[in-house]
C-alpha cells in the first residue's frame, strides 16, 4: 500500500438522481472494482443488482432462530409436563400436544424476530460508532436527505488514486471527493 492510499479511506462520487446512481454503479462494477458501496436516502430498487451484491443471509438466520425458538418452546413444555412434573388435569395426557401449539407458535415468532433484528445488525456491522465517510461534509449533510453517492475503497486492488478519480469523473457525477480517514 502506497503512502497516498494510507491516509485516505477512498473516493466518493455524488449523483443527484437514483437513476444516475444505478447507471454509475453498473459501470463501477463492470470496471472491475469490488470494494465499493453506494449510498441512497431510501432503498433504491435495482441498486443491489447494479452493485453485484449476493443474496443476503438474513433470511437463513431468521429461519434458524425461529426453529430454535419453536423447538425450545415445545421441548420446554414437553419436558415439564412429561418428565419434570407430570400432573393429571381433567384426565388429559401429560403430552397433550394440541395445547402446546400456541406457545410454540409465539416463541417461534419471537426467536425469528430476534434473528431478523440481530442478524441484520450483525451482518451490517452495526452499531458502528465511527465511519470515515462522515468526514465528507456533503455526505454528512445529504446522504440522508436528497443525494446519492458511490464510494470506492482505497483497499480495492484496482484502486489507484489518480486513475480511479479520473474514472469516477468520467461517470459525470456532481462532485468527486477524497475521503480522509
Amino acid at each position: 500500500m502506497t503512502a497516498a492510499k494510507s491516509h485516505i479511506y477512498g473516493l466518493l462520487a455524488e449523483f443527484d438522481t437514483p437513476e444516475a446512481l444505478i447507471a454509475a454503479a453498473e459501470k463501477v462494477r463492470d470496471a472491475g472494482y469490488r470494494r465499493t458501496d453506494a449510498f441512497s436516502p431510501f432503498p433504491v430498487h435495482g441498486l443491489a443488482a447494479a452493485l453485484g451484491l449476493q443474496r443476503t443471509r438474513v433470511a437463513l438466520i431468521t429461519l434458524l432462530c425461529g426453529i430454535c425458538g419453536g423447538l425450545g418452546a415445545y421441548g420446554m413444555m414437553w419436558f415439564s409436563s412429561v418428565i419434570a412434573y407430570p400432573f393429571n388435569i381433567g384426565g388429559r395426557p401429560p403430552h397433550s400436544w394440541p395445547a402446546f401449539v400456541p406457545i410454540t407458535f409465539e416463541l417461534t415468532v419471537l426467536g425469528a424476530a430476534f434473528g431478523a433484528l440481530l442478524g441484520m445488525l450483525a451482518l451490517n456491522g452495526l452499531p458502528q460508532p465511527y465511519h470515515p465517510l462522515f468526514n465528507v461534509q456533503r455526505f454528512a449533510d445529504h446522504a440522508s436527505r436528497d443525494c446519492f453517492f458511490i464510494a470506492i475503497d482505497a483497499a480495492d486492488p484496482k484502486f489507484e488514486l489518480s486513475d480511479t478519480r479520473a474514472f469516477l469523473e468520467s461517470l459525470q457525477p456532481q462532485h468527486v471527493s477524497e475521503v480522509p480517514r
Binding site: 409465539e106 415468532v109 452495526l126
Partner: peptide, 28 residues
Amino acid sequence: AMGWRNSARHWHRYQMAYLLLAGLAAPL
C-alpha cells in the same frame, strides 16, 4: 441510529429483515 449510513449493502439486508418482520408480525 447505531451508525446507519444509508449504504446500499445495508439497505439490501435491511429490506429483507423488514419484510421478514412484517411476515412474522402479521400472523402474530
